[in-house]
Amino acid sequence: MILTIAGKELRTLFASPLAWVVLTVMQLIVGYAFLRRLDDFLQLQPQLAQMASPPGITDLVAGPIFGTAAAVLLFAVPVLSMRLIAEERRNQTMVLLMSAPVSMTEIVLGKFVGLTAFLAGIVALTTLMPLALAGSARLDYGLLAALVVGLLLLAAAFSAVSLFVSCLTVHPVVAAIGAFAALLGMVLAGEAAGDGLRARGWTVAASLTQVFSPIKSFEPFGKGLLDTYAIACLVLLTTLALALAIRQLDAQRLRS
């Protein structure tokens, strides 16, 4: 049932221009960043050759473009997620799902899986760019894999948080702006709160704020590290947001 709903989300997403616009913009921005980085790398190459253990092409090209992709997701996910609940409620199509023998959990997970699958497509397209160099350069596949895992987890966390915000309102635009504010707020405040707490020596509290600072959790992947704490933080944030979304939808059935 989760897959049925996820499939429906993907189908309606690709039937609207939104998906194609997002994909196009994403490709343009990431593509530009990729070419720019590649250019820089080619210019730096003579100097790199003199270094004892120079950073490889994967470090210098793939790392930054995954960072760019993460930044673009920060904008794209809220726009994509506003359709999930807010727009369905607005168009009164939510009734189809609510009247069907489907639980609230299945609805939320179905929508989450649908959006995350679309984002996984974006991650795949991003990965193809450094892979295109495979014929002419030696790639660090370990680092590339870490980046892919990191970006996928980050995309999942973004979509779960945005999905929750989408449950809070029936106005799609409010949902999009709210989700964007929530994500950006997390990136900025989570970082600042972590630093502030660490400066006071409250290391445990500082570590916990990392749960709400997904970009910070993404950083270790850029160094090729599969940091279990960072993975746990992203998974925890995703789970928490999904649980809140389910609760919120259930509460709405009881309230109004």
Binding site: K8, R11, T12, A15, S16, N91, Q92, T93, M94, V95, L96, S99, A100, P101, V102, S103
Partner: peptide
């Protein structure tokens, strides 16, 4: 038992819940 009960109902609300893009 919402799932078992809902499986036996068909509902057309006032505004039909149609996905226009399908």
């Amino acid at each position: 038992q919402p799932s078992a009960a809902k499986a036996r109902i068909g509902y057309l609300p006032e505004v039909p819940p149609l996905y226009r893009e399908l």
